Every structure is written in C-alpha cells, then in structure tokens.
Simulated scan of single mutants.
Amino acid sequence: MWTSIEDSLCELGESPFWHPEERALYWLDIPGRAALRTRGDIGSPEAKVERWALSTEPGCMAPARSGGLVIALRDGIYRARKWGGELVAMARVEHDVSTMRFNDGKCDALGRFWAGSINEAKDRANAALYCLDARSNTGISPTITQMANQATTANGLAFSPDARTLYWADTPAHVVRAWDWDAEGNSLSHARVFQQFDAKPEGWSPDSLLRYGGRPDGATVDAEGHYWVAMFEGAQLLRFSPSGQQVAAVPVPVQCPTMPCFGGDDLKTLFVTSGRKGRPAAEIEQRPASGTVISMRVETPGLPVNFFED
C-alpha cells in the first residue's frame, strides 16, 4: 500500500536517501532548486518537511561522515558543513553549463562521491560519470576522475553489496550497463549491457493503447544484491537479480517515478521520488501523488546509505 509523505510535493524529486542518525529522509527538487528533508517521525502529527533553497539545480547529494552534505549542482560539486550552510566548491568539470549539468549520483562504500552529468539538449551522448575522492587519509588533495562516458542522461547509479559490480544507466537510450568494479583500486572493466528496454513507441501517451514500460531513471540495490530501478513514464519499479533476471514489477501510483531508496530503522521502507513538471493536466488529475515522495513496506531490506568521507 503506497502512501505519500505530506508536504513533499516537488516539480522533479530526485536523489533520496535515509539518514540513519537523524532518522530522516533527504531528497532534492531539481528544477525547484531545493534540498528537502523530513523532521520528526514520518506520518506523525509533528512531522514536517524542511526546504533549503539552492542557487542552481541540484542533481544529487549524499551525507558526510563529519557532518553536513556533499551536493552536485549544475557547475560543480560542493560541500555544506551544515543544513542551509555555505556551499564551498570542491570540484568542477569542463562542461558547458548552458546545456550540461550534474544529475544522478551517490557515494560508494569507501566514501567517494560519484556524480553523472546530463546533456539537456539531448543532441549527443557527451554526458559522463565522475568520481570525487576527498578522503583525508589518502594524503592527497581532492581529485575528480572521469570513470565512464558516452551517455546522454546519467542515471541508475548503484553498487553491488560485494563492491564488485557498478551499474549505470543512460535514460534516453533505455539502457542499464554494468561493469566489473575493483572498489579498492577504483577501476572499471568488462563493460556490458545489463538491461536494454524497448524504446517509447511513436505517438505513445499514458492513456493510449500502446504499451510502454518506461525508461530507466534512478536506482538502488537491496541487501540481496537485487537492482531496483524507477521506470520514468512507466508507472512502475522493476527489480532484477544480479544475473539480470527480472524478478518483480511493482506498480506505483505515479506515472513518472524517479528514484527509489530504502529507509526506516529496519531499512524495509521503500521510498520513491517522482516528477510532475511538464506532465499533462489529465495525468496529474488521475495520479495526484505525482511529484510527491511515496513509500511502502517491503520484505527485503535495503543497504544503509554510504557517507562521504573527507
């Protein structure tokens, strides 16, 4: 049974994570240029949602071990020592900010922050995946490295529980790729297609008779190593085994789910952000939860969020 978090409405919600120390859900509104978080027990009378206005579009964020957040904005990756605090630039990449910005990302288990970019014009596959290593125990200054490329919209980033596989999606191409990943050395090899989805049929609309399962947006991995991906415009989440077998299709009450994450004290609450920006009025009327954060209980727990180390 899906429920919506009260006052969670966004134009395009993204990058949710559960903060175990604060017992709070964090997420972003990309076009709304805001970070959001819950305060108090979700669903209780005293619960509320706090919003932090940002200077430009945030693509992704992660909690930091020493406090605060790391946030990828349009033009670079920034560090905030506290909620609402000063944003200090940590790294920038050479992309044209008039058409390119950061999008989906998260931290790996070793505390490095990964963020992919998006070509908003969608005229060529020049988006890339970057990794920022700012760990103080490395003895070197923060470094940002391009790890993968040839995408149009970076999405679906996730890491297997054993830190041997990295997943990364290109939304317009309807593809999720996988790599063998040496986490300690941080190298990728054996690139392959993990899932290739059917393209959107010409003339498709949510109320047409044409079938369309959506395209891969944000993703997460559960404790069993299964890959959960939000299918934008498909009104569903799909769950795949590590071998690539689809084991579940979970309908959602929004046409455009954007990213799942696991939370709650037992990590058995599945939270999903969603979008409503640019959607037809009839769709919003039929699916009023569009743009909110929805949640439901699941049997298999997720993995705890990875913290940024600096």
Rank of each mutant, 00 (worst) to 15 (best):
W2M: 11
T3I: 14
T3V: 14
S4K: 15
S8E: 06
C10V: 14
G13I: 10
G13N: 10
F17G: 08
E21L: 07
E22L: 15
W27A: 13
D29Y: 14
R33C: 15
A35D: 02
R37D: 13
R39A: 15
E50I: 11
T56P: 00
C60Y: 04
A62V: 08
A64N: 09
G68N: 04
G68H: 05
V70R: 07
L73M: 13
I77R: 13
Y78C: 08
R79G: 07
W83R: 15
G84K: 13
E94C: 06
M100F: 08
R101M: 05
D104R: 13
K106I: 09
C107P: 08
F113H: 06
S117H: 02
L129F: 04
L132D: 07
A134D: 11
A134E: 06
I140A: 15
S141I: 05
P142D: 01
M147H: 04
A148R: 11
Q150G: 00
Q150S: 12
T153S: 03
A154I: 05
L157T: 02
A158S: 12
A158R: 08
A158Q: 03
S160G: 11
R164A: 04
T165F: 06
Y167P: 00
W168L: 13
W168P: 07
P172F: 10
V176G: 00
R177W: 04
W179A: 07
W181S: 04
V193I: 14
V193N: 02
F194A: 11
Q196V: 10
D198K: 09
A199E: 13
K200R: 15
D207R: 13
P216D: 04
P216Q: 04
A219R: 09
V221M: 07
V221D: 01
A223I: 04
A223W: 03
E224M: 09
Y227F: 13
E233A: 15
Q236V: 01
S241P: 01
S241F: 00
S241T: 15
P242R: 10
Q246I: 15
A249D: 02
V250F: 07
P251F: 12
V252N: 04
C256W: 02
P257E: 05
T258K: 10
P260N: 01
G264F: 03
L270V: 09
S274P: 10
K277V: 09
R279N: 01
I284Y: 05
E285D: 11
E285C: 02
R287P: 00
R287V: 02
P288H: 12
A289E: 15
T292D: 06
V293N: 06
I294C: 06
S295Q: 12
V298C: 09
E299R: 11
P301D: 03
P301G: 01
D310I: 07
D310T: 08
